[in-house]
Simulated assay, not measured.
Amino acid sequence: MTYSDAVEAVPESRPDRPKAKRGGKRERLAAAAARVLHEQGMEKTTIADIARAADVPLGNVYYYFKTKDQLVEAAIDSHAQHLAGLIDALDALPTPQDRLKALVSGWVDQRELTARYGCPTGSLASELDKRDDGLDQSLATVMRVLLDWAEQQFLALGRTEDARELAVALIASYQGVSLLTNTFRDPEMMASEGRRLERWIDSLA
């Protein structure tokens, strides 16, 4: 998540954190949908793929989700929950500078995954943009949460006149370097941009 994306720096995905308990079938299917759609894209992903990744019998999937589009909606909801948890964790840090830099650090931690598959929310947004069923706006709502949160951090840094512009610049930088990292399969691009963003945040504090 996003994470942003961003959604992209999921705390429980880090190796130094305990794994979450196994959830119910609906929750497992939603999480699996988010993961498989990220790895394979919408066109290549089937309901059977998601069922297999969630360790749920295919026949049971239809009790919870009748169509693949409903699974895409569930994946978007999973991204939203994921982002909410991330923001809660970031908000526990003492200063807006710390929070913004921790967000960037989380993105960098996911650089190997980004090199293989791109940004989870950015990739899905690109695919949904080609449809006219409104799912793109559902994902935009999730991404706006991260953008609004970043704006609040810049406001807390005293940037009252350009906080929104700075928030857009931060998220745009991440999305851009995610594309380059994935295109060139080069995780160091993400690491290098992360270091630059941390210096930039320090310069604003």
Score class of each variant (00 low, 15 high):
Thr2Leu: 11
Val7Asn: 08
Ala9Pro: 15
Pro11Thr: 10
Pro15Phe: 15
Pro18Ala: 06
Leu37Asp: 09
Leu37Lys: 09
His38Val: 12
His38Arg: 15
Met42Pro: 01
Leu58Met: 14
Asn60Phe: 12
Tyr62Ile: 09
Tyr64Val: 04
Tyr64Thr: 09
Phe65Ala: 11
Ala74Gly: 03
Ile76Phe: 07
Ser78Met: 13
Ala80Glu: 15
Leu83Lys: 07
Ile87Lys: 15
Asp88Leu: 14
Asp88Pro: 11
Leu93Tyr: 04
Leu100Phe: 01
Leu100Asn: 02
Leu103Trp: 03
Ser105Gln: 01
Val108Ala: 00
Gln110Pro: 01
Arg111Asn: 11
Glu112Met: 08
Tyr117Ala: 03
Thr121Lys: 10
Leu124Met: 02
Ser126Gly: 13
Ser126Pro: 07
Glu127Ala: 07
Leu135Thr: 07
Gln137Gly: 11
Ser138His: 13
Leu139Pro: 00
Arg144Thr: 08
Leu146Ala: 14
Leu147Arg: 10
Asp148Thr: 06
Gln152Pro: 03
Leu155Gln: 09
Gly158Ile: 02
Arg159Ile: 06
Ala163Asn: 01
Glu165Phe: 02
Glu165Tyr: 02
Leu170Lys: 00
Ala172Ile: 05
Ser173Ala: 12
Gln175Arg: 15
Ser178Gln: 11
Thr183Pro: 00
Ser192His: 09
Glu193Thr: 12
Gly194Ile: 04
Arg195Gln: 11
Arg196Cys: 05
Arg196Glu: 06
Leu197Asn: 09
Glu198Asp: 03
Trp200His: 04
Trp200Thr: 07
Ser203Lys: 04
Leu204Phe: 08
